[in-house]
Design a protein around this nucleic acid. Sequence first.
DNA 1: CCTCTATCTTGACAGTGTCAGGATAGATGG
DNA 2: CCATCTATCCTGACACTGTCAAGATAGAGG
Lengths: 201, 201
Amino acid sequence: MARYDVQMTMEKPYHHGDLRSALLAAAESELLEKGVEAFSLRSVAKRAGVSHAAPAHHFGDATGLLTALAAYGFQEFLATQHAFEARAPQTPRDQLIAAGLGYVGFARTRPALFKLMFGSQRTDYSDAALGSAAEAAIGHLTSQVKLVGSVAAQDVAAVWATAHGLADLIIAGRISVIRDFSEDDLQAMLATILARSLPGV
Amino acid sequence: MARYDVQMTMEKPYHHGDLRSALLAAAESELLEKGVEAFSLRSVAKRAGVSHAAPAHHFGDATGLLTALAAYGFQEFLATQHAFEARAPQTPRDQLIAAGLGYVGFARTRPALFKLMFGSQRTDYSDAALGSAAEAAIGHLTSQVKLVGSVAAQDVAAVWATAHGLADLIIAGRISVIRDFSEDDLQAMLATILARSLPGV
DNA sequence: CCTCTATCTTGACAGTGTCAGGATAGATGG
DNA sequence: CCATCTATCCTGACACTGTCAAGATAGAGG
């Protein structure tokens, strides 16, 4: 009977079907709860319902899994920036600020991924997938700055550092004043600070 | 003979004398070489020449050691900012920028400590020593902003985020353009970016 | 139908943090 | 001067970790 087959399948199929994606999702949850430092590969495997050595075949070792997760994170990161830009006015300056807001927004929505991507030593940036994904995300910000009119490396560094600093401090819970802010007020404050980092054209 | 006694003492005294300080120093070296995630308490003990359980009596567990190290880090952090300020002009604005340069300077000089203080989950900020040390360092920056004339929380967040973002991205090696910069050019660029984060009084 | 290959499991190993109990040495009080 | 006391450090054990080797399973292709 089909019903029985399904139940068998649900219970314990030898081949998972999409273990790679399941492990990535489990790893993000693991990071969110325990942090990068207490990350356990065996615990991730248990979350996905497979044996402790199953991840090895898909990712090699723990660094391989975290590297793949970081690469996925940069894709999401770029997508978030694009989503923010789509809702903003189409002037270069507004678009750049929207990218900055997306930068911070991603960090607040996926803090585990953000910390992995920017604050961890357990990722291998010589990996092709991670390298190109990271370069795409950073290149986007750079091109946005150029569209505003600046070609100075100093201006890229300024807006990037401002967005990054805001993101990092906020998800660390260190900017305590924003607790009393509404979401709109917070966005307005972030936009003001980001705008200030641009050369005052 | 005194000489023999000294040699005996150098070889293997049962009581270390200043094991607490030795462990903190060894821990910073360990962090610098391996990173926070690969940090090993047993390896730190081996560096200090004691058994693997010796740190427990001084720090409780691994988190206790890293917490104490972070508290020490915030003292050094504040001292670095003061050192930068001492060499700068005595105007409020120059003093604040000097504090920001000290912020980045500390991160570049002691990256392991900086990452531990701002990017790790293995520190206990409910600890009294760490809490007060961190508050002292952050309170300093806040008071510097107020001296410039601003009382808006937004301005504190702006200059803090800018300094923090620059520090974090630089020690992560992500701002690649600075590789071609001389030290003076780098300081000038940082000062320009930091100055931009202030309200344009 | 039979092999081939990708996928997953089991079992083992060295290394980790932490706890319990014992050894040592400097300090304290008689 | 000596006995005890306490802080300091060591040894041994436990559960847990990541990784490797070898075997089991199932789907795919000839």
